[in-house]
């Protein structure tokens, strides 16, 4: 079936079977491999994308459900020049990255939070990340990076 939606601010139309997940549509049909498949049951958050402003597990969304929606994936998050944006830069500065497999999902989850608020407490940041598993970092430097970005964006706005 033909699925039409906005992907990373660009309109897109793609022919795909109706029973594939949004995650597989992105990875297998659109060759966007930034969203990762960690569990396929909506537990790990490695496949996180932003759908109409909300953080979702793309492994739990059927591709046809994306029809007419606005989807932002990790590939749509960057500075205007294509390099890292402030959040991504802070992930590097604060040492938030280890193996990195959860990191696209963490960056997406961080952006979804910062779209809602620029004054999150550390507890609120932790709650916002509770659906994204990381086995390497213990989360602390990820929280540091998101908190620092919130402060910087607040000061800039």
């Amino acid at each position: 079936m033909l699925i039409e939606f906005t992907l990373n601010y660009q309109p897109i139309a793609i022919e795909a079977p109706p029973d594939v997940t949004l995650l597989h549509l992105l990875r297998d049909h659109l060759n966007l491999t930034g969203a990762k498949e960690g569990c396929s049951v909506g537990e790990c958050g490695a496949c996180s994308v932003i759908m109409d402003g909300r953080l979702v597990n793309s492994c739990l969304v059927l591709a046809p459900q994306a029809h007419g929606s606005e989807i932002i994936t990790i590939e749509g998050i960057h500075a205007p020049d294509g390099g890292p944006n402030d959040l991504q830069e802070n992930f590097i500065t604060y040492g938030a990255v280890q193996c990195g497999i959860c990191i696209p999902g963490m960056v997406v989850a961080g952006e979804a939070l910062l779209m809602r608020t620029l004054t999150p407490t550390r507890t609120e940041i932790r709650t916002a990340l509770a659906g994204n598993l990381c086995r390497c970092t213990g989360y602390q430097q990820i929280v540091d990076a998101i908190e620092a970005t919130a402060v910087q964006r607040r000061q800039a706005s």
Binding site: T33, G34, P84, T93, G100
Partner: peptide, 22 residues
């Protein structure tokens, strides 16, 4: 001293190609 992890950039951009991405 504070340093940048050598593989952090490709990972935060979602560009690192793990085995399932190849």
């Amino acid at each position: 001293k504070p340093a940048r992890r050598v593989d952090a950039l490709e990972k935060v951009m979602g560009k690192a190609k793990y085995i399932a991405d190849r």
